[in-house]
């Protein structure tokens, strides 16, 4: 677990400047570590993408509920796009 945790600390900028420099130097000399860090960064991006999609689904549910239950909201919106 240590390595993945360490890469996370690097990605999330939770390392001291000195440790960052050491880590960068290690990446330069170790292709495997470099690749793992790159893939981990992409994994973070995917999690963000997944989370944003989940948030959009929640918002769509709010819209649907308002549309169903709030007649004033529905008519306001309908009037705009008539």
């Amino acid at each position: 677990m240590h390595e993945i945790q360490e890469i996370d600390q690097y990605i999330l900028r939770e390392m001291s400047v000195e440790d960052q420099l050491v880590f960068q130097a290690r990446m330069l000399s170790c292709r495997d570590l470099q690749e793992k860090a790159a893939h981990q960064l992409q994994a973070h991006a995917l999690v963000r993408r997944f989370a944003r999609e989940a948030q959009r689904e929640k918002l769509a549910a709010i819209y649907a509920r308002l549309w169903e239950t709030d007649a004033a909201f529905r008519s306001e919106i309908t009037a705009i796009f008539q």
Partner: peptide, 27 residues
């Protein structure tokens, strides 16, 4: 969040409509 949605979406919808967009785009 529902309150923000309720208060803000009509104004956003009107803005998008003025720009030439439809309801799906506004949403």
């Amino acid at each position: 969040l529902t309150n923000i949605y309720r208060d803000t979406f009509p104004q956003v919808a009107a803005t998008v409509h003025r720009l030439g967009g439809n309801l799906d785009t506004a949403r």
